[in-house]
Amino acid sequence: MRFPRVIRLDESDSRVYEPPSLPSEWAVSGSFAFVDRDPALLHGKPGQAFRSGFLGTESFGWSTLVAVEEISDEEHAAVLERLATHFMARYGAPDRTTALRAARDEAEFAASLCEHPLHTLLAVERRVENGEIVEEFRVVRPTGADHARVRLWGIEDDGDPS
Rank of each mutant, 00 (worst) to 15 (best):
G56L: 00
T120C: 07
D146K: 15
L9F: 08
R2T: 08
R127G: 03
P23Y: 11
V124G: 02
A33I: 00
A40R: 15
D158N: 14
G159A: 09
L55M: 14
L80R: 15
Y17S: 00
R82C: 03
L55H: 04
E106I: 00
Y91D: 12
D158F: 13
D105E: 15
E70P: 06
L122M: 09
V16Y: 04
S12Q: 12
V6I: 14
R82H: 15
V35N: 04
D146I: 07
V66D: 05
E115F: 02
F34V: 00
E58T: 11
A145M: 10
E135C: 10
G131F: 11
L80Y: 06
A84F: 12
L83M: 08
R51N: 05
A77I: 05
S63T: 05
V35G: 01
V79I: 10
P20A: 13
P161V: 04
H76A: 11
M1S: 13
A111W: 13
A107S: 15
H86A: 06
E74K: 15
S14M: 09
P20R: 03
H43V: 03
F60S: 01
L113M: 12
D10G: 06
T143G: 10
P46D: 12
A123R: 09
V68G: 03
A123D: 15
P23G: 04
D13P: 06
R127W: 13
E125Q: 13
E106Q: 09
L22N: 10
H147T: 12
E69D: 13
H116R: 15
R37V: 01
V139N: 10
N130L: 11
D38F: 03
E18D: 12
S63D: 07
L22F: 11
V140M: 11
G144P: 10
E132C: 02
W62A: 01
F54K: 02
R149V: 05
E136L: 09
H147N: 08
R138G: 14
F87S: 00
R149C: 04
A148N: 15
A40I: 02
P20E: 09
E115H: 10
L100A: 02
D105H: 14
H147A: 08
N130S: 12
R5Y: 05
F34T: 00
L152R: 13
D160G: 06
A102V: 05
E81P: 08
G154P: 01
R8T: 07
W26L: 03
A107V: 03
E106Y: 02
D95E: 13
E108N: 14
L65T: 07
D73S: 05
G131M: 05
E115W: 07
A93S: 14
A93R: 09
F32P: 02
L22W: 09
M88Y: 07
D36Q: 13
S31I: 01
E25K: 04
Y91L: 08
S72K: 03
V16P: 00
P46V: 00
R126V: 01
L9E: 08
D10E: 11
E135I: 03
